[in-house]
Design a protein around this nucleic acid. Structure first.
Lengths: 223, 223
DNA sequence: GTAAGTATGTTGTAAATCCAACAAAGGACG
DNA sequence: CGTCCTTTGTTGGATTTACAACATACTTAC
């Protein structure tokens, strides 16, 4: 379908690839494209997945069901992101989580390992795709590590400061705007919103930071 | 050196590779091997790294220096593990952390991207190495996600139960032995040791688990 | 078997967090 | 300008945690 072609081009996984190469993937016998309506199951816990998922449009939730039957949402994957890549390449034979469409979605399931192993001649194709995949996986790795560094801290103050220091570094200066509102920030650092607000006020009162809403400034030598 | 050959063979990054292929990497102009004594700096924050590190022997610490000059240890990488791979493949131009030898160590720095890009003909070689790398990175990804799921929980009880449910799943049953002592467990779930001990006792008193030291059993219907 | 050393469990208190309820500030729109 | 609605800040009380100190259980070496 013509449209899928355009959707593929937006996906970082296929970045830097030409039409022929996209076509090759799109028409591979190991590629399947399917529409899911909201709340339909895309992959079920226990499934033996060999395919990486691409959200061409819409979004999916990664969901875990625990021993006692409690269901918790682990991640939200929106177009044009990918999912399940870790299970395919880490030799995790059965999915430990389920994937459910969070909206009407168009999903591409790509048997990437098969496609790659059966096209050893197209070496440039191969290296482009692999480079994209490696970049995506290592970037996610960096983000996860960063989050762990933040939420590992035992107090809200430490979590906040760690988060703010990351933002300062990321945006290259002492003054910066964070990409969350208070509730979003509290969710990210895994703490209560009102407690986060209170701690920000304290930090301000102590002259450690200046802030207004999502604008922050780190004060170098708070004395 | 003959010995390096043997050390390489133990490393998952080079798993499944034959002597010729190991030799190819070992003698590449983009590969450097160096000895570091304890506390020597291997890579410095701000460096422009193009090389992935392999701990042939010994161990290194990944260290972060924050804005205020506080230094914190992010990770310990022991032989035969690798480090800095995420920076090389995620287009992070400068290292946000430093790497310091934690013991007398022998370190191999491999310009893997260069080696791979300049050997497009050796396609089998290429795919072996890439597969190993992808497996390592995605496995780490899984572990990081798991840890985040655990330490995201707000109470020690929830952290513990999430951890124990993972262990049960991993070991395929309700009875299992965890790979940590109390202090190690407390460190992993980011909580105080004595508080963890206390919570385990409570869970036992409430009939939710049975346990003795590192042996645990989940009780299905605690009423 | 016993002493010494380590790991685990228990308890009380101070500190931090969560939670809920409300106050204040900001934004959208007539 | 004023109302409605959302976001952010503030506060007090209940809950949870950290911390320290000590008790008990286990391990090891002799």
């Amino acid at each position: 379908m013509k449209k899928d072609f355009e959707l593929m081009k937006k996906c970082p996984l296929f970045g830097n690839m030409n039409n022929e190469e996209l076509e090759f993937i799109l028409t591979s016998p190991f590629t399947k494209i399917q529409n899911f309506s909201k709340n339909q199951t895309v992959l079920t816990e226990g499934d033996n997945v060999q395919s990486l998922g691409v959200v061409l449009s819409g979004s999916v939730q990664v969901v875990r069901n625990d021993y006692y039957g409690n269901r918790s949402i682990i991640a939200l994957v929106e177009s044009p992101q990918i999912f399940a890549e870790v299970f395919v390449f880490s030799d995790t034979p059965t999915m430990p989580v389920s994937v459910i469409s969070a909206a009407d979605s168009r999903i591409m399931l790509v048997g990437l390992k098969k496609i790659l192993s059966e096209s050893p001649d197209q070496s440039l194709f191969y290296s482009k795709l692999i480079n994209n995949l490696l970049r995506l996986v290592t970037e996610k790795n960096l983000r996860l590590n960063e989050k762990i560094e933040i939420i590992s801290k035992r107090t809200i103050r430490e979590k906040l400061m760690t988060f703010l220091l990351f933002q300062a570094r990321l945006q290259g200066g002492n003054s910066f705007t964070i990409p969350y509102d208070r509730q979003g920030l509290a969710d990210y650092i895994e703490a209560d919103r009102s407690a986060v607000s209170a701690e920000i006020s304290k930090l301000r009162a102590e002259g450690i930071i200046e802030s207004n809403r999502s604008q922050f400034r780190l004060i170098k030598n708070p004395e």
